[in-house]
């Protein structure tokens, strides 16, 4: 079936079977392999994308759910060479090691930070509960998300 949506700022129409998972659509049909698949039970969060700004697991979302919506993936965050403040925060705080969980972490963090400009450590840890990282022990991810939230808030203030 034909599905029209906005992908990383551009209009997109795809024609795929209605049971196509969004993670497969991105990875196999659209060549956007930054969204990862780390499990088969919706537990790991490596596949998280933003649907109308909300963090969702693309492994449990079917393509028709995209109709008329705005989909953002990890590839759509940076503006040219300028990283999104959350991406930059992960870089500055060594918030990633192998990089596999990173896209999902960053997307989850952006949704969280957009509602919590100054989150506590406890709130941040709770918000990341659906994303598993096996490398970092989470400490620097938590630090990154808190710093990224502050940077996003500062950018918004500057823009206002």
């Amino acid at each position: 079936m034909k599905i029209a949506f906005k992908l990383n700022g551009r209009s997109k129409t795809v024609d795929v079977p209605p049971a196509t998972l969004v993670c497969d659509l991105l990875r196999e049909n659209l060549g956007l392999t930054g969204t990862h698949v780390g499990c088969d039970t919706s537990q790991c969060g490596a596949c998280v994308v933003l649907l109308d700004g909300e963090a969702v697991k693309s492994c449990t979302l079917i393509a028709p759910a995209l109709e008329g919506k705005v989909l953002t993936t990890i590839e759509g965050l940076a503006k040219g060479d300028k990283l999104h403040p959350m991406q930059e925060a992960f870089h500055l705080n060594h918030g990633l090691q192998c990089g596999f969980c990173t896209p999902g972490m960053v997307m989850t963090a952006i949704d969280f930070a957009s509602h919590n400009p100054a989150p506590s450590e406890e709130e941040t840890r709770a918000a990341l509960e659906g994303n598993i990282c096996r490398c970092t022990g989470y400490q620097n991810i938590v630090k990154s998300v808190m710093a990224g939230a502050a940077a996003m808030a500062a950018e918004e203030t500057a823009a206002a």
């Binding site: 956007l32 930054g34 993936t73 990283l83 991406q87 990089g99 896209p103």
Partner: peptide
């Protein structure tokens, strides 16, 4: 190594 992973350009 961070940049490629942060922008979805890793090559797994």
């Amino acid at each position: 190594e961070d940049l490629r992973f942060l922008t979805g350009r890793g090559n797994y």
